[in-house]
Amino acid sequence: MISEALFFSAVLFTIGVVGVLTRRNAIIIFMCVELMLNAVNLSFIALSRLHGSANGQVFVLFVMTIAAAEAAVGLAIIISIFRHHKSVDLRNINLLKG
């Protein structure tokens, strides 16, 4: 079942990537990133099963924690941007230019 799990993981990750590339809504893009993280988690679990070691699961825990932190901060930023632009459209977020 490992290869199937890796297959699912790859498909989900790719869907996340395509989502990031096609959507313009910042929140949706954010959720796509979460999907990619989940896909990677699936890989971790599958490979942890493959090797018969729980270390992969530990890393999944770390990924989840970081994802939670990232979600908190990211959503706070989105709220700030929304207050500024009255929109979460990606086309408005162009302040990265030096």
Partner: peptide, 16 residues
């Protein structure tokens, strides 16, 4: 990681 979470909480509050 726990420290990161703490920082994230503080940061989220400050930003939002």
């Amino acid at each position: 990681t726990s420290v990161v979470l703490l920082v994230a909480v503080v940061g989220a509050v400050v930003l939002a």
